[in-house]
């Protein structure tokens, strides 16, 4: 009998980028397949085995009534649920709809809005079912994904920190771009990318969403002092993680 733990990968409203991060683990994919039975992963194979599953990796946000039902079924079938990426953990770029009128948006985009059945908001998986672990990023970092899977297999806590990007930036030895005049979202952004953008002279874009205690108001003042208009700051926040609770201004 196959004694491997059973893995399933699910997609909701998303671009597939996070699932692709798993397929992108070329060197480690065989080891993943040896350690886990990949029971259901439609992106990779059409052979889908029924549940229950030990570990479900979930990509994407909830944007339709049908998906809101489907995620409940996924939860029922799964011992552990880990959500992947900005869509599944914060609602994704599609959560920009949360700040506008859905009817107007649908009318602007589709020639026959009558065929569109959608919810007024895009919400993270955690708003619908209990989630065991959220892995952030747009897309997620494959090294962190492998860390989460290895930790799951070993029954230990994943080493994934919730502090600022700045801490990674300093460990890396980058000379802070913001102190040299370039607006950066690093101080309010969750670590995970190893501070990639500042290492190339760019400010952080906030792909990993809010860090554990994001002080958005204080950073807004700094951006303004650096010459960025309040609108520009607002736009910088209105991206992949726009709807994340930690980024809303008090």
């Amino acid at each position: 009998m196959d004694r491997r733990l059973r893995l399933a990968v699910w997609k909701f409203a998303s671009c597939d980028g996070c699932q692709l991060s798993l397929l992108d683990c070329e060197d480690e994919l065989l080891a993943v397949a040896e350690a886990l039975e990949i029971a259901s992963f439609p992106e990779a194979s059409s052979a889908v085995a029924p549940g229950p599953y030990d570990l479900s990796l979930v990509e994407g946000s909830i944007t339709t009534a049908h998906d809101a039902e489907r995620i409940r079924e996924v939860r029922r079938q799964s011992r552990h649920v880990v959500t992947l990426g900005a869509c599944a953990t914060a609602g994704g770029i599609q959560a920009l709809r949360n700040f506008a009128s859905i009817d107007e948006l649908v009318a602007a985009v589709y020639p026959s809005p009558g065929y569109i059945e959608t919810l007024a908001t895009s919400t993270p998986i955690g708003a619908h079912v209990p989630v065991d672990f959220e892995l952030r990023g747009c897309p997620i970092n494959k090294v962190q994904l492998l860390e989460v899977i290895s930790a799951f297999l070993a029954g230990r806590r994943p080493a994934v920190a919730a502090h600022s990007v700045c801490i990674e930036c300093k460990r890396r030895g980058t000379a802070c771009v913001m102190v040299q005049g370039v607006p950066c979202l690093g101080p309010v952004t969750h670590a995970g990318c190893a501070a990639l953008c500042p290492a190339y002279g760019r400010g952080c874009y906030g792909c990993y969403g809010p860090m554990e205690s994001a002080n958005v108001t204080a950073l807004a003042r700094r951006w303004q002092a650096l010459g960025a208009t309040p609108q520009r700051f607002e736009q910088a926040l209105r991206s992949f993680n726009a709807a994340a609770a930690g980024l809303q201004r008090k």
């Binding site: 502090h163 600022s164 700045c166 801490i167 300093k170 802070c176 690093g186 101080p187 309010v188 205690s213 002080n215 108001t217 204080a218 950073l219």
Partner: peptide, 9 residues
């Protein structure tokens, strides 16, 4: 605490 970003720099 209102000015500090708790960024750790």
């Amino acid at each position: 605490g209102e000015r500090c970003l708790s960024c750790g720099n």
